[in-house]
């Protein structure tokens, strides 16, 4: 297991390094840079552009800019944002925490809706609940996140007026924590929507397949009670699959949250990266992508470890 973890960690570090090289090359290929973006109407003034490029260090060869950034990174410094004159690490930390709040909220919604829905649908296969539940899931899976979010805002914030329409908290609320929780509801549901559909369908299909497996027939023949058959044997068998899918979905939630962040003006890392790319704020974009990539790798690594601990065959394979 230790060897497996070490191997995966080294591989992840190489992957992340490769991503930074790729992103840096892509930035060089894009027209425009931070100097042009900062200067606006003066972007046509060659003297102003040269001054700003020199100030930002953009007049150095691209490979030197990259290695300076990499050297700083190895010393724990992600650089400085050209737009905000703030350390990139501070910008990213603040936004990553906001994204993690959204991610945790979405994961709670995903697990608490997706798994029970899949289990009940499998146990009552072809019932009215199964048909309606799976029908809703299929429709939900096809709805664009953008539209779904706007629909929720219209319904719950504007028509029913029971939940806030946007942002992470309100300047009118005195209790910040409670305000965040209330503001989290709609964005969390929006972000989790597609993952719920996947998790529910995988849970249902896996459970159905397991329920029909020969060992389940053997359990019936041995007179094991139904509750025990399902919860102790069938569910235990589908757990590794669900953990794997959940790991992937958590990664998806992180990247998919950018739509939610835009619709609900949630100040997360997705919007930070998007804005940084638009403004050619390379250190912020690189730092943000690195952090998201690292979290994605960690989520998948955690899923692999959890699967291994649940499935002895997988453990041996490692």
């Amino acid at each position: 297991m230790v060897r497996f973890l070490a191997k995966r960690t080294v591989l992840a570090l190489f992957t992340l390094w490769g991503v930074t090289v790729l992103i840096f090359i892509l930035f060089q290929a894009l027209p425009g840079d931070a100097a042009i973006s900062l200067l606006g109407s003066q972007a046509g003034n060659p003297e102003a552009v040269a001054r700003m490029r020199s100030y930002l260090g953009l007049d150095r060869p691209a490979y030197i800019q990259y290695f300076v950034w990499l050297g700083d990174l190895l010393q724990g410094d992600l650089g400085q944002s050209a737009r905000f004159d703030q350390p990139v690490s501070k910008l990213i930390l603040d936004k990553a925490l906001n994204s993690i709040i959204l991610l945790v909220g979405s994961a709670v919604v995903m697990f608490s809706v997706g798994i029970p829905l899949g289990i009940v649908a499998a146990l009552r296969e072809r019932s009215l609940f199964d048909r309606i539940g799976m029908g809703v899931i299929i429709v939900l899976g096809m709805v664009p996140v953008f539209w779904f979010g706007l629909l929720l805002i219209y319904l719950f914030a504007l028509v029913l007026d029971v939940l806030p329409a946007s942002r992470m908290y309100s300047f009118h609320d005195s209790n910040r924590t409670l305000s965040i929780l209330v503001h989290l509801v709609l964005p969390a549901i929006t972000t989790a929507a597609i993952s719920i559909t996947i998790l529910a369908r995988v849970t249902r299909a896996s459970l159905l397949e397991t329920l029909e497996a020969p060992f389940m027939q053997a359990l019936i023949a041995r007179g094991i009670p139904v509750r025990r058959r399902i919860w102790r044997h069938a569910m235990r068998n589908i757990l590794p699959i669900m953990v794997n899918v959940s790991g992937l979905q958590i990664g998806w939630l992180f990247s998919g949250a950018i739509f939610t962040e835009v619709i609900f003006s949630w100040p997360g890392i997705g919007r930070l990266i998007y804005d940084a790319v638009s403004a050619r704020d390379v250190p912020v974009a690189l730092g943000g992508i690195l952090v998201v990539g690292a979290l994605f790798v960690l989520a998948n690594l955690a899923a692999d470890v959890a699967t291994a601990s649940l499935d002895p065959r997988r453990r041996e394979a490692m």
């Binding site: 805002i153 914030a157 504007l158 329409a165 946007s166 942002r167 835009v262 619709i263 609900f264 003006s265």
Partner: peptide, 20 residues
Amino acid sequence: LVILVMPDVAARQAALRAGE
């Protein structure tokens, strides 16, 4: 005076309608 950064026009207008 609080100035919110809200790039999405639908979100801005929803915030207005919701009194935010």
